[in-house]
Nucleic acid binder design. Structure first.
Length: 525
RNA sequence: GGCGCCGUAGCCAAGCGGUAAGGCAGUGGAUUGCAAAUCCACCAUCCCCGGUUCGAUCCCGGGCGGCGCCUCCA
């Protein structure tokens, strides 16, 4: 099965064919760097990082660009609030963004172009649009004239007439059409400004993506990504500018990811109102509805924790897994409970890695797994039952990913693979004392290598989890060694009450003690 | 008002024409001094009503319910 992707442009799944054979040009709308990133800002990067991994695995040479918007109204406002400069604020927040990407394992971005470093390219593009009659200057501003673009609205599937009816498009007499949008904005005193043929000003919101994508990737790209919320107006406008300027189709596939949603408490209040039967005053209803909406908008909600705060209490790997456990186009309900449930479900994998270590003396994390589909782990010969099952699972995994990057389905297969390997270990009593058949152990390594190969594609299980311990490690280790030695003595003498008391008391302290055939294991819970 | 999305077990979540993957939780069994972990087994007819079809969770129509965008929020 060839790779198929869903494009917003056609509202359907299409076979994936690149502009240039074997090469993929991918652009993702990046952040406006005016405040610390929250979880929602990680959704796109994690998804498209995974997309890139999968495309590379499938044999493509991928170039991925994510822009950094470092000039914008929000930046100007916030810099003023914080008594700093736009430059300083942008620099600080860009670093925050980079740190978070690294933490959550997004390392496939090839270029991070800055808007302020591409003013010239933007002005060139605006100039061409004006020359070609798609744009007009007006009192220092320059506007794109939507009616000049015959297929304007094709991405979000709306027409100019539709947009005018019943919308709140800002009334502006001076514009030729209310839907016309700014390519260039004349600056007010004190605002960041660049010289232009139309006077000092700064770029409009959409032009930077058009200009930078064209500069780095060329006028025709393969994949354009972004959050669903950006589809209109941002992507629609970006598309209009780019295609009007170049006369070529801008992006072959538009991929929009679903948004992160906070389960809103306010919504429940509103719902109860209506269920109780007494009609709340219209005003209250409006307030409840608004509060509800606010609660659902992570970006808008002031309480949304920064990702850094989140990483402090949740493993970044858990968050990444959480984001990939559902299809990228679906909205995800963010709640501490949901994240915790994901963390819980990952425990079994870490257990398996430990078991593997015990059985073979090898570290799962340092296994070298094949990086391409062509060279995928060999599963020929014996044991036919295990290898046969793994082959089937691999097929299902790749089938899921080939179907519009269905990471949710792929994650499910990973769980089944875990079960198959655990089952194999149990069947051959590999985790028990005694000599083991080398061939049987080698087969396990082959299976684990496949697991590594496939989990690499999701960007998970790449590195051991950081230890939970604090600075008192040496002391705790020493004390634990002593306590467990005393407990071992008690057990030897079949003094179960003492042994169990030690284990139970430690458990209350969040230290889990397990008696294994080959010795005792303890862990901070 | 316009453009869309969604409704699968207690929760999360694949499947989208041939009688429902997986995970968490739960239940029974194996193992264990007892636990933990692990293994084995069990655990849903897919919001409702019509239609198309030999056959629908999956297609079409109509409801009901939830949600997003149209506001420089990723």
């Amino acid at each position: 099965m060839p790779l198929r992707v869903y494009s917003t442009l056609t509202r359907s799944k299409e076979e994936f064919r690149t502009v240039e054979p074997g090469k993929v040009k991918m652009y993702l709308c990046g952040p406006t760097v005016y405040k610390p990133a929250h979880i929602g800002h990680m959704v796109g990067p994690v998804i498209f990082d995974t997309v890139k991994r999968y495309l590379a695995y499938s044999g493509y040479q991928v170039t991925w660009v994510v822009n950094i918007t470092d000039v914008d109204d929000k930046l100007i406002v916030r810099a003023k609030e914080n008594n700093t400069t736009v430059e300083a604020l942008a620099k600080q927040m860009t670093q925050d963004y980079f740190d978070n990407l690294a933490t959550i394992g997004v390392d496939g971005v090839d270029h991070f172009p800055y808007a302020t470093a591409h003013i010239k390219e933007m002005l060139d593009m605006i100039g061409r649009l004006v020359e070609q009659g798609y744009a007009y200057p007006l009192n220092g501003d320059v506007y794109f004239e939507v009616t000049k673009d015959a297929d304007y609205g094709k991405l979000s599937h709306r027409s100019v007439e539709q947009m005018l009816a019943g919308t709140r498009v800002e009334a502006n007499d001076r514009k030729r059409n209310p839907a016309d949008f700014a390519l260039w904005k004349a600056s007010k005193p004190g605002e960041p400004a660049w010289d232009s043929p139309w006077g000092p000003g700064r770029p409009g919101w959409h032009i930077e993506c058009s200009a930078m994508a064209a500069k780095i990737l060329g006028p025709e790209i393969d994949i354009h990504g972004g959050g669903l919320d950006l589809m209109f107006p941002h992507h629609e406008n970006e598309l209009a500018q780019s295609e009007s300027c170049s006369g070529k189709p801008f992006a072959r596939y538009w991929l929009h990811n679903g948004l992160m949603q906070a389960s809103g408490q306010a919504g429940k209040v509103g719902g109860q109102h209506s269920r109780h039967g007494d009609t709340p005053p219209a005003g209250d209803h409006m307030v409840a509805a608004q509060a509800d909406q606010e609660a659902n908008k992570l970006a808008g909600s002031k309480g949304a924790a920064s990702v850094k705060e989140l990483f402090a209490v949740q493993q970044p790997e858990t968050i990444r897994f959480f984001l990939l456990s559902t299809h990228y186009r679906s909205p995800i309900d963010f709640s501490p409970e949901n994240i915790a449930a994901t963390g819980q479900s990952l425990e079994g994998f870490y257990r398996l890695f430990e078991t593997y270590q015990r059985v073979t003396g090898k570290d799962f994390y340092t296994l070298t797994a094949p990086g391409t589909r062509e060279k995928s782990t060999k599963l020929d010969g014996e044991p036919a039952d295990l290898f046969g099952e793994l082959r089937a699972l691999r097929d299902r995994y790749l089938e899921a990913m080939d179907d519009d990057f269905n990471t949710g389905g792929a994650v499910g297969v990973l769980f089944e693979m875990r079960k198959a390997l655990n089952s194999y270990i149990a069947k051959h009593k590999l985790d028990a004392a005694g000599a083991k058949e080398p061939a049987v152990v080698d087969a396990l390594t082959t299976g684990m290598t496949l697991l590594k190969e496939l989990s690499n594609l999701l960007g998970v299980f790449r590195k051991p989890l950081p230890k939970k311990a604090g600075a008192d490690d040496a002391i705790v280790d020493g004390l634990m060694a002593l306590i467990l030695e005393l407990r071992a003595d008690a057990r030897k003498n079949k003094n179960w009450p003492v042994a169990d008391k030690i284990r139970d008391t430690l458990k209350a302290l969040k230290i889990v003690v397990e008696d294994r055939p080959d010795g005792v294991r303890w862990n901070r819970g």
